[in-house]
Amino acid sequence: MARRSEHASASPWLIAAMRLGVLALLMLLWAVAADNVSRNIIPSPLETFEAARRLWADGRLPTALGASLVTYLGGFALAVAFALPLGIVMGAFGLLGRTIEIYVYALAATPRVAFIPLIILTLGLGIEAKLFVVFLGAVMPIIINTYAGVRQADPDLVEMARSAGASRSRIFRAIVLPGAVPYVLAGLRIGATIGLINTVVAELYTAVTGLGGLLALYGNTFRMAEYFVIVLTLAAIGVVVTEVLRLLELRLTRWSN
């Protein structure tokens, strides 16, 4: 009696076709806009494509992309490595969690850009500072979600496990941690999004490098075709990372339908 959700029953081919259709529509709108708004502001799709080829061929785009990916993925990996254990420990030991959760929430609510002058003063303008800016953005949602996931373990399942004679540590490993996985994945997705934003922020505020650096350069010099290439590249990174996390989620929650 497998229950399937509405959109899972639509054929994946149909969804792909519809998505391509929307893409075509967007390109059309873009072309129309490029024709009707002054040329200097919106480049045509063709000009943008040409600009992309140029930037790729002269090596600027690959270099910037590489630098940004190092900052982004490095900072995100540090955030995961720090936030997962902390969130789990906070959830496992109630008193510790309740003690420090308020500071985590306070820090999460503070605009992280506010720390950039301090970060520059302590870590300088190099890769360390950039990694830390990304880390700081991504770490909070992962801590908060992991903590919430561990704390919100299903009390019915915990009671069932106790009734089966499971020890506290076995209940934690077999019931509490796996039950937190959907929360953790949601935290990773939010963290990945904020991490990408903070990558650009870091590249704009510290030593100007990477995609953020090119964004500022082309934006300030009104080279709009190049500027569009950078924006689309950033969007593509966002799509790829979110999609990878979504596939991970599908894989880890196969049991749910």
Binding site: D156, L157, E159, M160, A174, P178, V181, W255
Partner: peptide, 9 residues
């Protein structure tokens, strides 16, 4: 138990 309490994963 009444509500089965199976481990969904």
């Amino acid at each position: 138990f009444q509500n089965f309490r199976l481990i969904p994963w």
